[in-house]
């Protein structure tokens, strides 16, 4: 039972991050292959604020959001100038840079990472197992609600317009700069929350937890489940989270399998399981354009 709860916690955390990536990639149409960097920034921010500044998880949370969101704003700038393919490479570069900063700068614990991260407490009790899963589920629900609200807002419509045809969107009063950056801020802030939850469940983090392969993992979840759909990223996180648990021997090939799934989906079912023309999509449909 404990084992299942642990698996569910990790799936939930990854789903939150994948929902964030969906805002950037699915709603605003901006490629990002460096999402794990923001997951990491959230994790390190919360770990440092709780271990070094003595805050609780809940006190640190607003700062975590602020820090990841602002860095997301800063690192979203390249999306304003670069073509898609260059942006893909740039975001990968950002991922490697952030990972090396964690790895080599002593302030971030260097190769040893940060340990003894406190558990989350609520009303004086330490949350482990089921109660922690409850907190994760709460934030997952929040991220889904936020995404639903976003797709129904004018800001969401502006992002769809930019995704579909940037020049036309601009000629209709939509500032590409403003709304791309907004998508990056929302998306990276969600990754930040997920990262913070990760730090406090693991209680030990190191730079390699946030490397480029993890960005590929997040992207695979979004693409597998259905890019730009409300439930797709969560479904993708569940499938990719369960697969290696069910097929134990596959666990060492996890990254390879993720990359393979990404390529196969893009080739044969670009809309993902819940997207576009798939059977499931019609049963379970949440096209962004229809809110």
């Amino acid at each position: 039972m404990n084992y299942l709860v642990t698996v569910a916690i990790f799936i939930g955390i990854q789903a939150i991050a994948a929902n964030g990536l969906n805002v950037i990639v699915g709603y605003a149409g901006q490629i990002s292959l460096g999402h794990a960097a923001f997951f990491g920034i959230g994790a390190y921010a919360s770990a440092l604020l709780t271990t070094k500044a003595g805050m609780t998880f809940w006190q640190a949370l607003p700062f975590v959001l602020l820090i990841t969101g602002s860095i997301g704003l800063l690192l979203g700038m390249p999306s304003l100038r670069l073509r898609e393919d260059f942006l893909a490479v740039t975001t990968i570069g950002i991922n490697f840079i952030v990972e090396s900063i964690f790895q080599y700068i002593p302030f971030f614990g260097g190769a040893l990472g940060i340990s003894n991260i406190p558990s989350i407490r609520l009303f004086g009790t330490r949350l482990r197992g089921w109660p922690f899963l409850g907190v994760v589920a709460f934030f997952l629900l929040l991220s889904l609600l936020a995404n639903r609200k976003f797709t129904k807002s004018c800001a969401g419509l502006a992002c769809f317009a930019i995704r579909e045809e940037e020049t036309a969107a601009a000629s209709m009063g939509v500032s590409p700069v403003r709304f791309k950056l907004l998508a990056f801020v929302i998306g990276t802030a969600m990754a930040g929350i997920a990262g913070a939850l990760y730090a406090h469940t693991m209680r030990f983090i190191a730079a390699t937890d946030f490397g480029f392969p993890h960005s590929v993992n997040f992207m695979s979840m979004v693409v597998l489940g259905g890019i730009g759909t409300l439930w797709g990223p969560t479904l993708g996180a569940i499938i990719l989270g369960l697969l290696p648990e069910i097929f134990r021997p596959l666990i060492q090939y996890r990254m390879l399998i993720n990359a393979l799934i990404l390529l196969l989906m893009i080739r044969f079912q670009p809309g993902g399981i819940l997207g576009g023309s798939s059977v499931l999509a019609r049963l379970f449909r949440r096209r962004p354009s229809h809110g």
Partner: peptide, 16 residues
């Protein structure tokens, strides 16, 4: 929705 795109807060109102 032209008028709503000029202001981040206004842009969070419903479009449909």
């Amino acid at each position: 929705h032209l008028a709503r795109y000029r202001n981040i807060l206004a842009s969070f109102t419903s479009w449909n």
